[in-house]
């Protein structure tokens, strides 16, 4: 799919912490409406890349977002402080007020994610993993972003809840023409939903369609051991 103006254009991006270089010379583009999966072993810099894209870290090189890009960020399941007397609704209302959104914004975002009134009145400390993830996605959707940056949305979820979250993200992408950048460990999910894959690894970063990237050879190079997943590669169809 040729798209003249990329939503995101990254050129020669490098991020270092002191002597340690985490990302080096990374170059890629993301077109509107795409679902870019960012994969790689632990410590390859996936979260660091997201934070650089959010402009929360000093970096070298260029990160250019298309004009009028609005970012929504879904962090990795945060260890929420169980003691906080904070309800989901408190949190969403706080963001809505900060962004000066109208009162109904919270309800609208909650409806999109199918987050009921009961959950809005639930304290954050007692949410289940899946509910918590949904709350974070609702939070990210406030302010009507056109790009979602999602960090390992399923790290602490059971399979059913995982699938639910991925399907939700895919629904959002298709219905609202969102661009999604998704850090994921789960290669079968990447294969099912991603339209592009960026793999980060100590050796050579690679970028392309899932069909090209998710080959046994490539995965062996990215992860030190070949994941079991590669046997399934041929059974899936790739949406592009």
């Amino acid at each position: 799919m040729a798209n003249p103006v990329p939503v995101l254009s990254v050129r020669k991006l490098s991020v270092s912490f002191g002597q340690r270089t985490v990302l080096e010379d990374l170059t890629f583009d993301v077109a509107r409406g795409e679902n870019l999966a960012i994969i790689g072993p632990n410590g390859a810099g996936k979260t660091v890349l997201l934070r650089a894209l959010l402009n929360q870290l000093p970096y070298e090189g260029a990160i250019e977002w298309a004009p009028e890009t609005k970012l929504g960020y879904v962090p990795q399941a945060i260890a929420a402080d169980l003691q906080l007397p904070l309800q989901v609704g408190d949190l969403l209302a706080a963001k809505a007020r900060l962004l000066k959104l109208p009162d109904k914004a919270v309800r609208e975002a909650a409806t999109i994610v199918d987050l009921g009134a009961e959950l809005l009145a639930t304290r954050i400390g007692v949410l289940s993993g899946g509910q918590f993830q949904k709350a974070l996605i609702t939070f990210a959707l406030l302010g009507d972003p056109n790009v979602l940056l999602v960090d390992e949305p399923t790290a602490s979820l059971d399979e059913l809840a995982q699938e639910h979250i991925y399907e939700l993200l895919e629904k959002l992408r298709l219905e609202r023409n969102l661009t999604v950048l998704l850090v994921s460990h789960d290669l079968s999910v990447v294969y099912q939903f991603a339209t592009k894959v960026l793999c980060l690894s100590k050796g050579r970063p690679c970028f392309g369609s899932p069909r090209d990237i998710l080959t046994p050879d490539n995965l062996a190079a990215v992860y030190s051991a070949v994941p079991k997943f590669y046997q399934h590669v041929h059974h899936h169809d790739v949406k592009e």
Partner: peptide
């Protein structure tokens, strides 16, 4: 600063992403 404080309590990185 009540809202900013609440967001930063919940998650500093989310707060930062919300331009706090």
């Amino acid at each position: 600063f009540r809202d900013q404080l609440l967001l930063s309590l919940f998650s500093p990185e989310l707060a930062a992403a919300t331009s706090v």
